[in-house]
Design a protein around this nucleic acid. Structure first.
Lengths: 161, 161
DNA sequence: TATTGTTATACTCTATAACTATA
DNA sequence: TATAGTTATAGAGTATAACAATA
């Protein structure tokens, strides 16, 4: 579901032309289908709630890794996030322009550049991480605390080598 | 993780320059992050195994819905799959050109077009659905049968209104 | 010779506006 | 007036090749 706006439900006075119930049971039996639908729903909520910070998921992920790994390099970010180096350049450059991250020479490798949060970036991320946790609560509101942990644990078992 | 080719692991003779352990615990505590990583891993496997049929995930989903809902319209496909109408046109047109689906006038609505599998499309989908089920088994090989069902059930609780 | 960061670029995916024909 | 299907097009996301600086 990638549309941003949810449409009003079909009028109750519709004739049978277009509201025949659709059988999606096969697709809904697939892990890949359900994982993708879940991710899209949460990303949609993310885009909504994080728009005040001007952060897309990839920006938030990048800043979060920089926050918890000061001096991390572009290569390490690419490996951790599954982003290709040419596509990270613009992301980091924009965060730099906004004064959220700072690039410092790597202490031992002259080719590499270490990334650090600026004070502004650090302050924003404290708020943004709190907002994300609130969003997580909302997204998993139909799950118990234990179910949410089970869900995350099972997902990791699937994708982590 | 969107790269197609998995790289060889870092050499054991690396110095400490680039293999410092990265702390991803915050991101990995998030449902959205884990759901997206899982979806990407499964989609990667899907692209690999389904390339023999020339079917992307959206093609497979479309054909599967047509298979189980003969006469389904484009609008219904869009609603069921979260695709916008302009983006479905090319998908259906290509499947039509390949002789996998057939468009027939809708019995009661002159604006609408009902979609049906051709005999070739039906034959391919029987194979393709079997292949997808095999892929699902592989993707969830680290899960018990019960865990896989629990995972799917929990995912549905998150994304289904 | 290999790796980091980068530029340029192409391809795919997703989104909006507007048209036509039918309802 | 509203809906189904379509066209054109713009923007975002993702991919590869090739380069300079450094290891």
């Amino acid at each position: 579901m990638s549309q941003r706006k949810s449409k009003p439900p079909a009028s109750a006075t519709d004739n049978g032309t277009s509201d025949a119930p659709i059988d999606s049971t096969f697709l809904e039996s697939l892990l890949g289908y359900n994982a993708r639908r879940t991710a899209l729903v949460i990303i949609e909520a993310f885009l909504d709630r994080m728009s005040v910070y001007g952060l897309r998921p990839v920006d938030f992920s990048t800043l979060s890794l920089v926050a918890h790994n000061p001096g991390i390099t572009s290569r390490q970010l690419c490996a951790a996030l599954g982003i290709l180096p040419p596509n990270l350049v613009r992301i980091v450059a924009d965060l730099d322009k906004r004064g959220l991250v700072q690039r410092k020479p790597h202490p031992t490798d002259g080719r590499a550049i270490g990334l650090h949060l600026t004070p502004d970036g650090s302050k924003m991320m404290k708020e943004a991480e709190t907002t994300v946790l609130t969003l997580e609560d909302a997204a998993s509101s139909r799950l118990s605390v234990e179910e949410r942990l089970t869900l995350i644990s099972l997902l990791k078992k699937v994708y982590k080598a």
